[in-house]
Nucleic acid binder design. Structure first.
Lengths: 142, 142
DNA sequence: ACGGTACTAATAATCGTTCTCAATTTCTAA
DNA sequence: TTAGAAATTGAGAACGATTATTAGTACCGT
């Protein structure tokens, strides 16, 4: 079993909400975990050849479940919603080159620490955050 | 003239791109500057009663112009795009309560400084950034 | 004033996403 | 293990936000 940990998280979430374990949900989870981050469209195309044909609506429904169970996190870059795999990876943020569209991932504990301080100052409790830096990557700057 | 500075910026941008100054564009700019941040819909409703009726498409087009000329900045919170007024205000970030939806603005130079450091380490040049903290506000936490 | 170009409002079209519904699958508990 | 309740499915319609099209209007340099 490849993605035992995530399967466990999903099953737990499903059980807690009296939802059912289905082939489609496991297939989608598996395809989802094969990438850093994907869109619903991409998953749809990836799974297009599978035995039970999986509808786009099911993919959207399942991606929402993955978000609720803490396996995925959605992010709005352009027009499409991107879903990030966040179980194995530590939290990371993104630099996006506005020229070529390349996405660089990074993480920085000091920034997160400062975020906590700011939040505390406002009586705010952080559950998640998004930090995106926009600009020019090394090769587009020249 | 109330918003002279912004009008100047817009006119400058229009001139630079050989675009024209029109009543609609000035009306939309004026309405836009009356708020911290708005959606296209909101502007449409605000301007609904004006003498020359302004179409929704024109509002979207003009908001894009405002972004290009550095007066506005778009932000994707929920389903609708929000446009922030960023000329007078210093750059600020947002805490969003996932319970009640309240948005708290804050600014923190230390975080921005760390962002520059991280970017430099990757040979990246930042033009803008977005930082959003999600969680529970003081009154929703209890 | 003229002609050309940019602009506009209205409408149609598009995109990503969600909803509807009849048929199917999963779970539960007898 | 099996019946039946409840959740899930795919297909396509529907949806809301945004963009393109169109045919007519306003601006500007000459």
């Amino acid at each position: 079993m490849k993605h035992a940990k995530e399967l466990g998280l999903l099953r737990e979430h499903l059980a807690k909400h009296r939802l059912k374990v289905t082939t489609q949900r496991e297939l989608i989870l598996d395809a989802f975990l094969g990438n850093e981050h994907v869109t619903a469209e991409q998953l749809y195309r990836m799974l297009g050849r599978h035995k039970p044909h999986i509808g786009l609506a099911t993919i959207y429904r399942t991606l929402n479940l993955l978000c609720e169970s803490g396996i995925a996190q959605e992010r709005h870059f352009g027009s499409q919603t991107h879903y990030d795999n966040v179980v194995h990876k530590r939290h990371h943020d993104h630099m996006i080159c506005t020229q070529c569209g390349v996405i660089i991932e990074f993480e920085n504990c000091d920034i997160e620490h400062l975020q906590d301080q700011v939040a505390a100052r406002h009586g705010f409790t952080i559950s998640t955050h998004k930090l995106e830096l926009y600009g020019w990557c090394k090769s587009c700057k020249r």
